[in-house]
Simulated assay, not measured.
Amino acid sequence: MDNDRVLRFGGAARFAHWGHTVTFLVLLFTGLILFTPALNFLAPVFGGYVNASLVHKIMAVFFTIIPLIALAMNFKGFIEWWKDVFSFGKDDIKFLMKFPLEFFGFNVEIPPQSKFNGGEKMNSVVTTTACVFLALSGYVMWFKDAFPLVVVQWAYPIHGLCMLIATCMVCMHAYLGSFHPGSGESFWGMWKGTVRSDWAAHHHGKWYDDVTKS
């Protein structure tokens, strides 16, 4: 940390974030090709319908492996993230109550937040849960002969529902992290690893105080 910037995300977190971003987007578009004939015009981008299916399966493997690699790279960081996103207090509730105004660009006073604010905590829990069920249901669909028929039948709607949930969360996350007024520094935190000290103090006061004291 220097006087102007503070380290927010290390290499393992950034690897997991961008690795999952790329694989999720490829999985989304190849999956939509397989899901509906209306998007067959996208199939040539991946070399045709059959190749789109192959790319989907390959990306599914990477989608599964990437978080495991990141976990091995920084297990302590994973535990800290886990504890933070599941530590939901009154300041997080206050943040969520003011979030609609924040979302539409109004200048509101934000209650002191930890490394992840109330919205980011909810996003982490919902997106992670959706992605876990996406992966599990996807593997059931892939190796359907190895599972009971009822499990396979449930896998298809679960996969579709989790895809919708994850896509909505990713779109909202992308907007808030990259395009929302005042939140652009979040992008640089995940791209370069550091954020401005004044931004950190304003948006994540509790975390910033802990970092500057250590």
Score class of each variant (00 low, 15 high):
109 E>F: 08
210 D>W: 09
1 M>R: 09
159 H>M: 12
185 E>Y: 14
96 L>R: 01
172 M>S: 11
67 P>E: 03
195 V>D: 09
177 G>S: 15
98 K>V: 00
127 T>H: 07
14 R>W: 01
200 A>S: 15
135 A>I: 15
105 G>L: 00
71 L>Q: 05
197 S>V: 13
68 L>Y: 04
198 D>W: 07
119 G>I: 07
85 V>N: 03
167 T>N: 10
66 I>V: 14
91 D>K: 08
96 L>I: 05
109 E>N: 11
28 L>K: 02
126 V>T: 07
112 P>A: 12
124 S>A: 15
164 L>C: 12
17 H>G: 04
97 M>R: 05
98 K>C: 00
150 V>F: 14
190 M>Q: 11
81 W>T: 09
89 G>T: 09
2 D>C: 05
97 M>E: 02
202 H>W: 01
5 R>N: 09
6 V>F: 06
72 A>P: 02
212 T>P: 04
112 P>T: 11
108 V>G: 00
116 F>S: 10
42 L>D: 04
17 H>Q: 04
91 D>G: 01
85 V>H: 03
41 F>V: 08
119 G>P: 07
106 F>G: 00
152 V>A: 10
59 M>T: 05
202 H>E: 08
101 L>P: 00
39 L>P: 11
153 Q>A: 10
180 H>K: 15
166 A>S: 14
35 F>T: 08
186 S>Q: 08
188 W>E: 14
70 A>P: 03
72 A>G: 06
173 H>K: 14
112 P>W: 09
163 M>F: 14
182 G>V: 01
127 T>Y: 07
63 F>L: 03
2 D>L: 04
152 V>C: 06
162 C>V: 14
206 K>Y: 05
120 E>Y: 10
46 F>G: 05
56 H>K: 05
122 M>I: 12
13 A>R: 01
179 F>V: 14
85 V>D: 03
35 F>Y: 15
61 V>I: 14
170 V>G: 09
122 M>R: 05
6 V>M: 08
198 D>E: 13
31 G>C: 05
87 S>P: 03
126 V>D: 02
52 A>F: 06
200 A>P: 10
50 V>K: 10
135 A>K: 03
125 V>Y: 05
171 C>E: 09
147 F>S: 12
